[in-house]
Every structure is written in C-alpha cells, then in structure tokens.
C-alpha cells in the first residue's frame, strides 16, 4: 500500500525572525510553493511572497454599480413608476437623490470589499490540513510556521524534511490531507 501523497511539510519556529530567515532560505533553495502561518502579519514575508488579488477593483466596480442602481431606483420610482407632485418639487429632484445614491455606492462597495477579502483569503474553509499539527494552535498566538506544499516541483518528502530541519525549527511535521 502506497502512502497517499501528503499536503506538505511544515516547520515550526518560535519567532518571526526565524520564520523570515526560513522563508528567504526556502526561496533561495528554489522552493516556490510554500506558505507561512503567523499570529500577525510580517512585512518582510509579504515582500517575498507575491499574492495576487482583485479586492480593490471588485469593490470599485461594485460601488459604481451601487451608485447607478441607487440613482436609477430613485429616478424610476419618483419620475416614472409613481410620479407625484410632492411639495411642488420636480419629479426628478436629483439634488435630493444624491444622498441615497451615495449611501448605496458605499453599501455596495463595502459589501463587495468584505466578500472579496474573505474570498481571496480562501475563507470560509473550516478545515485545513495544518490544523492536524498539534501545536498549530500556537499559530494564533506565538507560533510561526512554514509549510512547503507537496505540489512544489522540488518537493520530495525526505529532501524537504531535511531542508526544513536545516533551518533549526522547533519541530518538523509531515502534513497529511486527512
């Protein structure tokens, strides 16, 4: 029986500095598919890891849509579907419609930004293979993890493990999917 291919190989460090050094070394060693896990964002790692997202454009387009919908809804209702003389004001009282147009612009924008953020964070995903690591709970307070994923071209369970050991981690785990 062959062992199933693991998710990756993870190493735990006890401070951010060690993690940053490990990342730089992993990159120098030619690894490309790896991810770090830390209790707080680390600026240096962001510089190394290149993450792609479309949060801002999505938010912008959505906000624009919200604005158009917001104004059109008011125009449609006030001037088209239910035209009424209210206080002698014109049907298309666009000056008065500005506020709601703005509100809907913001509302659509912020919902899109929130949704896009969570989406690009890969959430919600209540399970993650790393959760199998017993000490991974520390990743939310003072644990720093580097995981080289198995689909990296250089990934070899033994080599990678050895490489990780060379970074003086606290521990190294093989991470299974299940």
């Amino acid at each position: 029986m062959t062992r199933p291919r693991p998710y990756g190989m993870a190493a735990e460090f006890d401070d951010a500095g060690a993690l940053v050094r490990a990342v730089r070394k992993a990159r120098a060693a030619g690894y490309r598919r790896f991810e770090t896990y830390s209790p707080h964002p680390i600026e240096e790692i962001d510089q190394v890891m290149q993450h792609w997202d479309m949060i801002a454009p999505i938010g912008f387009v959505s906000a624009l849509t919200g604005g158009v919908i917001g104004f059109y809804m008011q125009y449609f209702i006030a001037a088209d579907v239910y035209p009424t003389n209210i206080g002698g004001r014109p049907l298309n009282s666009w000056q008065a419609f500005v506020v709601i147009t703005f509100a809907l612009t913001v509302l659509f924008g912020l919902i899109a930004v929130f949704g896009a953020t969570v989406f690009f964070q890969g959430m919600p995903s209540l399970y993650h293979p790393l959760f199998k690591i017993p000490s991974f709970r520390r990743a939310s307070s003072n644990g720093y993890f580097l995981c080289i994923e198995s689909w990296d071209e250089q990934f070899q369970p033994i080599d990678t493990s050895r490489f990780l050991q060379s970074l003086y981690p606290i521990n190294v785990w093989e991470v299974d999917y299940e």
Partner: peptide, 17 residues
C-alpha cells in the same frame, strides 16, 4: 471561518481592512 494566519490571509486582511 477557518482562519489559519497564512501570509496570504494576512495580506488580504490588511488590504481589506
């Protein structure tokens, strides 16, 4: 929501917020 604290999540988190 299954937060792991990956660098990608942190990056998105900062950007989103």
């Amino acid at each position: 929501l299954g937060w792991q604290g990956s660098s990608k999540q942190w990056r998105m988190q900062e950007k989103g917020s």
